[in-house]
Design a protein around this nucleic acid. Structure first.
Lengths: 142, 142
DNA sequence: TCAACAGTTTAGAATAAATATAATGTATTA
DNA sequence: TAATACATTATATTTATTCTAAACTGTTGA
């Protein structure tokens, strides 16, 4: 609970009330050096394992969505049965291993700047995501 | 029904039996110069409007998946409640307008080749997709 | 041509993620 | 500390997708 205050600040600055549940979720998501990817199901499981409090599914959904809106989390565009989220909100990209259902970060430095020449009138680009699907390299595929 | 034979060929060459339903779906998807994006729901609606036969939801799902496997259709990686598909299977990218829930093609020529320096041992890249989210350009956004 | 088989379609049931609801609880404020 | 606005919760609902099992159809080869 050492970092609780910093999460309370973070929440308050975003107009979110610092409740027990939200602080717990912050701890799980941000109380580590490493960023990571998760689904709601996985997040719920982590909270259940490391917390004494119970957090309902609805609260987890609500809070994750609030954090996305505030820019604390990023949704990863992937056509999967469940949504994937990323605690790394810096500009970077992903490999998606379809065989193992696994996401791997690609640092910005490992991809040349994606330069899109086309523009849409009245619109501006908010974000650019690169998803590279990877498969096993053993046998010769079509 | 003029193009039926060409679809029968196409299906047969892919090991799919040319059934009434599949030929109808081919007509809807491929019997036009223009490529387009669709969801299953939209596809079902189009079929209902322009066909005399009824095609069940399960068949539409099965057939779309078979076509993806064969490379006649592409799935567009988008975290949306429904999956989006593309009849344009050439290498290209997309804008996604979140405000209007609209997909727009970006031709390959309009994006510099995406060069990923990172590699994963034992894996090779199967596909690279760029999704650029766009928003209205009027007021100053954060 | 026709029987037999394997693949296909179908309606409806099942599944699962995500959202909505409405009652209860809690943080904030004045 | 009372009032209130916001949150949480369990549960129900919604919706896309997949599954199932029975009926059907295209294909093959005798």
């Amino acid at each position: 609970m050492a970092y609780a205050e910093q999460y309370i600040d973070k929440l308050r600055k975003s107009g979110l009330r610092p409740t027990k549940q939200r602080i717990k979720i912050c701890e799980v998501l941000f109380d580590t050096d490493k960023t990571f990817h998760f689904t709601i199901k996985e997040l719920v499981k982590i909270i259940e394992n490391q917390a004494n409090i119970k957090v309902s599914l609805a609260t987890v959904y609500n809070t994750v969505h609030a954090f996305i809106k505030k820019g604390y989390l990023k949704e990863i565009p992937l056509n999967a049965s469940q949504s994937y989220y990323d605690t790394n909100v810096t500009h970077h990209h992903h490999f998606f291993d379809e065989e193992e259902n696994r996401l791997i970060d690609i640092h910005q430095d490992d991809v040349d700047e994606v330069n899109i020449k086309k523009t849409i009138p009245g619109k501006k680009i908010k974000s650019v995501e690169v998803i590279a699907k990877i498969v096993s390299d053993n046998q010769s595929q079509k």
